Amino acid sequence: MEDDDDDVSQKVVKWMEMLKKGLGHELEARIFDGVQMDHVEKGLIRCKSVVPKHLSDKDGNWHVGAMATLIDAIGAAAIFSSAPQVKASVLLDISYFSTAKIQEEVEIEAKVVRHKGRLLAAVVVINKKGSTEMVALGKLWMTSSNVQHPPTTSKINPSKL
């Protein structure tokens, strides 16, 4: 069982490294700039980052759109580590509590908290490093994206209209 967890962790780390290199979208590569993974296990990811200047707003705060993209991607990675199938986001809810300035260090934790049928939920928390001051809290629900198609032959009688 532990070998399976190690394999999943390696796949998640590889996927996140690919995003950092820009093999997904340029936006994700920019968002992951400076993100360092501290811990990856089934259903749990811990990262740290320093807010880069290119992800700030006009006031020098970490841009909320950049945080939202990071919360979505790291939450998806935590879910992928728990159930490695292609997933689709069905709900992303983020609450912002404080700001983080350029060059400020933050800690990010994504944890799978619910698995119900084909739905999985993760909570992503961003705190200022070394403090309990929360910057943002994200809740992400995902589901399997492989749609079950009905059989080609049906036992239902066709309409006679």
Rank of each mutant, 00 (worst) to 15 (best):
A100C: 05
G43I: 01
E133A: 13
W62F: 10
A121P: 00
A110S: 12
F32Y: 10
P84I: 09
H25E: 14
V8R: 15
A136S: 13
I102C: 11
S49P: 00
S81K: 05
Q36K: 14
K87H: 12
V113K: 08
P52K: 04
A121D: 14
L161K: 11
E17M: 02
L91Q: 15
F80C: 10
W15H: 14
I45K: 05
S9E: 10
N146T: 12
D5A: 13
K101N: 09
M67A: 11
P158C: 02
D57H: 06
A76V: 02
V12H: 12
S131V: 03
Q10E: 15
M37Q: 08
W15M: 15
G130S: 11
S89H: 03
I126E: 11
K139Y: 01
G22P: 09
K48F: 03
E17Q: 12
A77W: 07
V112Q: 03
R30D: 12
V147Q: 14
P150L: 09
V90W: 05
W62D: 00
F80G: 10
V50W: 00
D38I: 08
G60I: 05
V147M: 12
H54I: 00
L137Q: 10
E26L: 08
H54C: 00
K11H: 10
Q10S: 14
P84K: 11
K42D: 01
Y96D: 05
W62L: 07
A66E: 04
W141R: 04
A88E: 07
S159N: 13
S131P: 08
N61T: 00
R114G: 02
P158Y: 06
A76W: 04
T69M: 07
K14Y: 07
I31S: 07
V90K: 11
P84T: 10
K48A: 09
A122I: 10
K58C: 04
P150Q: 08
D33C: 03
M134N: 10
D7E: 15
E105I: 02
H63E: 06
M1Y: 03
D4F: 12
I71Y: 01
I126R: 10
S81Q: 02
K20E: 11
G138I: 01
K111E: 13
D6S: 12
S131C: 05
L55W: 04
T69F: 01
S56T: 15
A100D: 02
E107D: 15
